[in-house]
Design a protein around this nucleic acid. Structure first.
Lengths: 241, 241
DNA sequence: TAGTGGTCTAGACCACAAA
DNA sequence: TTGTGGTCTAGACCACTAA
């Protein structure tokens, strides 16, 4: 249902609702969606708002429309993680695995110099630090270490992020939507600590991704370091000439 | 001016009009566009229609909007650098390093089953196999193992690919242009052989990329496996929500 | 013919930037 | 305070598909 008092626009709420149904498998490729009129009745919004939500899904390649027939869930031709910002949870569902999360660390820390530079703040400025172990089908998959500029979202660590996405709280409580990100990808050998957490041999290969995410005002808000198990995690993407 | 009797939707006519002014240089990067209200008056359409036209231009990266300020012609800086097919040589120059190449293997081989599947040919079909060591500033950087469907480019291995890009011969002699590719990225530990070639310790982390490239007729032509040194090679990309 | 998505209008109120 | 783009509504008519 759409929260009328939320700061999140209706169309974006509806977009999230529909996206979930597709990504989490409630609706399957080829399935027909409710008509625009149905959606408009169900969610009590205007047709423009419904179409704005659907437009976003079309742009993402998740659905397609046929005039006179209806709107359908697209067959996952391709288009993947490398181009879109996807939460770990959605990512795993798309890969057909059951995601779960374990919070390892949740605290405030002074900004290390390299991260401060990426987040465009002074070294030593207060950052939230949230380190989580991500599991897929109950087997360790990744370590995700996330830094947020605490000033933008004071008190955000009071919530429990083993169940709830960090992005959701950011949007709902702080009205911060991360719309753009830059990342670097490389391969590293697992340290003793990472190997222990991930249940793999020391020196096993990890896919290390560092990502800086920007708000719609183009302000860097989050720095994340992912360590994905090389033997389990794959990135896909497409290239054009 | 917008033709009311045309079958072309108003928003698309307006989109073309505005697009021309940008592409043909009437408006320059950083220039402010007329406000939505101006456009609505000038072209005698509703605000929704104006916005639909502008949305298309935003999606194309030609303009950007700033609430409270206005709409501007975008600087053609980057963004669309998302992920282009780039040769190793160009790639290294972009990174400010001097590329060089050493051919390790150049021969015909029967298609292994997994590669045959990716190239949509029968297992055992004749493929060219070209294995090259890539160096940057005279230091080993990557191993690149390339398979081509020999039937599409017979005799291609007669040339020397330590100096000349394979793609160039494909285009010039066989009129095959690779315009599209899919790839997977993962992290692996270096085998004894790879480690030796790359001058790194056994088990060092490598970025392993497998890429299938398609011709403009959408036929898979080439399968490449890259092994990039984790300590030297970095992938960079951008994401959008 | 009935129902779908495609296009379009004329309003309205809001958050934000700049003067 | 004024003007911008951001969101939203409640209509309308159209072209197309399928029954």
């Amino acid at each position: 249902m759409i929260r009328r008092d939320s700061k999140v626009p209706f169309y974006h709420q509806l977009y999230e609702i529909l996206r979930h149904k597709i990504v989490r498998g409630e609706w399957h490729p080829g399935d027909i969606l409710p008509t625009e009129n149905d959606l408009l009745d169900t969610y009590r919004v205007s047709r423009s708002t419904v179409r704005q939500a659907l437009d976003a899904l079309v742009g993402e390649g998740l659905i397609y429309r046929q005039r006179g027939r209806g709107t359908f869930v697209a067959h996952p031709t391709v288009e993947q993680t490398l181009m879109r910002i996807v939460s770990f949870t959605d990512d795993m569902y798309q890969r057909g695995m059951k995601p779960s999360t374990e919070v390892l660390v949740s605290e405030l820390v002074p900004a290390p110099e390299d991260i401060a530079r990426q987040l465009d703040v002074e070294p030593g400025e207060e950052l939230t630090y949230l380190e989580r172990l991500r599991l897929a089908d109950d087997e360790p998959m990744s370590i995700e270490a996330s830094y947020l500029v605490h000033r933008y979202c004071p008190g955000i660590l009071n919530d429990d992020y083993s169940k709830k996405p960090l992005r959701l709280t950011l949007e709902e409580k702080y009205n911060i939507r991360l719309v753009y990100a830059k990342q670097t990808i490389r391969a590293v050998n697992a340290s003793r600590r990472l190997a222990g957490k991930l249940g793999i041999p020391v020196n096993a290969a990890l896919l290390a991704i560092e990502r800086v995410s920007y708000s719609k005002e183009n302000i860097p808000v989050e720095f994340i370091r992912f360590y994905h198990r090389g033997d389990r995690y794959l990135l896909y993407n497409e290239l054009r000439d």
